[in-house]
Nucleic acid binder design. Sequence first.
RNA 1: GGGCCUAUAAGCUAGAGGCUAAACUGACUCGUUUACACCGAGUAUUCAGCGGUUCGAUUCCGCUUAGGCCCACCA
Length: 791
Amino acid sequence: MAEANSSSNSKFDFKHIESKWKSFWEKEKIYTADLKKKEIYSVDTPPPTVSGAMHIGHTFSYSQQDFIARFQRMFLEGKDGSVFYPFGTDDNGLPTERLIEKTKNLKSKDMSREEFIDLCLKSLKEILPDFIQAWKDLGISCDYNVYYSTIDDNSRKISQKSFLDLYKLKEIYKKEFPTIWCPECQTSIAQAELEDKEEKSLFSTLKFSCGNKDLLIATTRPELLGACVAVFVHPADKKYKNVVGKIAKVPLFDYEVPIIADTSADPDKGTGALMVCSYGDKYDVDAINRYKLVPKIIFDKSGRVNFGEYKGLKVKEARKKILEDLKKENLIVEQKEINHTVNVHDKCGTPIEFATTEQWFIKILDKKRKLIEQGNKIKWYPEFMHKRYDNWVNGLEWDWNISRERHFGVPIPVWECKKCGEVILAEEKELPVDPLQIKKKCPKCKSETKPEEKVLDTWATSSLTPQITSSLIKDKVVVPYSLRPQGHDIIRTWAFYTIVKSYLHSKTIPWKDIAISGNVSLGGEKMSKSKGNVIDPKIIMNKYGADATRFWAAGSKLGNDLDYQEKDLIAGTKMINKLINASKFVFMNLKDYNPKNKPHKLEKIDELFLDKLNILVKECTESFKGYEYSKVKLDVEKFFWSDFCDNYLEIVKKRVYQGEGNAKLSAQFTLYNSLLTILKLIAPIMPFITEEIYQEYFRKNEKEKSIHISSWPEADKKESANHIKILEKLYSIISQVRQEKSLNKKAMNVEIVLTLPKEDYEEIKSVLEDLKNVSNAKAIREGKKFEVEFL
RNA sequence: GGGCCUAUAAGCUAGAGGCUAAACUGACUCGUUUACACCGAGUAUUCAGCGGUUCGAUUCCGCUUAGGCCCACCA
């Protein structure tokens, strides 16, 4: 390494160094947890979706969690502790389904669920090594041998067992419920699959009647007139004061519905009165639920009207026909064209409907208070993220719908008796099971059963990541884990559901701490593929290497977004270079040094310097424990550059070049130990270069085979405020001298005679020789004021 | 519409109820040869606006403005 970088200006060959240590770490199993240890720091690693490649948000957040894992690994070393840091991928959702469909050029629905899952697992095997390589390249210190996919046999088994257990605990129920439905694809879809679309629409004001008076209601969905079950007005709306509680007649269809006062009606929208239909939108679903109204379902699952003269018409055809009929009957008062956004299915662009289907739910509404309590038991980093969780829980309105009418996913492991309706659960030894593949008879009436066709919501499985990773190590680590690192966009899903599951299964919190990472933005905007403002981390890694990339990721506080700028990577490369050169210098001067030889007494300045380093160690340890890696980065960078390189190295140069005996030994001792300490402090952030330097120079004297399993520096307790004052004074005088030289356009190594005011002179008396050395002063005198005399 | 976050130098970010408000990148000036020009020293520029609390606020509180994120709505 030293050769590669000396005299010539050739760049530091990070690629060579990175690949060398990557394979070393893997071979030596540096990241494997020793589960026999007493204290295990366990990480509930977020499983990325295998959807192509790592993106910059991953680079950012995984680096940040890795700083913590690496710190804990070193911190627990020698304290009878170890770090459990598994790795998984999330492959049971739509993105994976699409990826496989695309790469294999087929449709999941053309094959059985089992076949598709098999294909998926097979394809994963092909794609995975390359995909995971990006995490290894970044130096993410997971134990990649403790691996899971959320669609593999074991995960499916655990997910299905969770379902069965909760069903037996009566926490799961089945109910007919209107869910978001795509009439085109004929499946229920998740909220996450919705897209907004601007559409032109006719906003028609229709004549309802109440008694013998007209009651005007504006709507964009006249085709739902036949599904109207109530009229809402705002309780404070004077216009409608005397119709509340009465009955309204629906135009054209001539049936009656109640008029209800509800604060959700906006007096300023349309006419202030609105019709509640089954089902126009989510609002209707909610309204009908709250008032326990009886829904009138007028569309079938293919989106066609199912009754009367409109039977068979699709939504848009029915709308047209009904508007014509309304016009004929003179029931339209006003009509205007408006632009509004409608929810469409992102796959086909069809406006969604709501269809009532049988769905499975986990009861959560009855546990809101408990779930808030669970959230309070967890430490949130940063603290304000806790509020997002509370807000979400407090705002919950529905139980958790865990069933999806998708083909691909973890099957719901039940059958239902065709005759008596009995629900037959899979047996534990059958798991993982696809009910479609097995025929069962009803144990009660011996009739035929039909398998449940739906699959579980992906969150129903990924909310079990702690249990899944536990199972991989024979449950030697169980909830609560030490840490869940994740992004803030999925607090309401992944974090929330994991808390739910841990509570339901074991009445515990899933982890003691949760650390939330921010996003990477570009020019203040969130990066996204659709905007096209995406930075590919591969390019950064190629150009600057893993350490510089990680150093960049350490630049903003946990939970804060960071605006990406390429030049911020430069700081990391400079840091690497400086570390290399400083180490080179140190070891050039340690050729005749044996670490076993301790100086019988430290020189004053060495003692002062080590005191300051001691404070740094103390601060960094606290910072890391509190997930403030960015403070560590800042503090170490500053100390290393300014204290160590610019000042201390300059101060001891003469002593190590020309000194002898104890004075020299003291300097060598200090250089060796302070450099090693600095390397250890920054090792969690820059694992490659610190390992390189450790192996190159320190390994022969130090017992641990890798810096990453060497023990974290201990700070001793001594208070040394006075020492720090002397040191700071010395720095300030050095700086003043440099300033004088600079102002007078002299070289830094020009020889001077220095005069110091009495107080200053007295204060730094103990390190006068050092000041002479570093400022190249022939003499230092005591006088009235600060003065530099050039010779 | 609701919630949350942010506003500090040209840029990206630290920070603290009073001390000289900080690091890095960039700019400018000067220097350099026994670790480093991917260097060293120096210079310039700064707390979004308005109110309040306080002896004192850039820091705490409120409002305004701007930006971001999440959620809801879109009859």
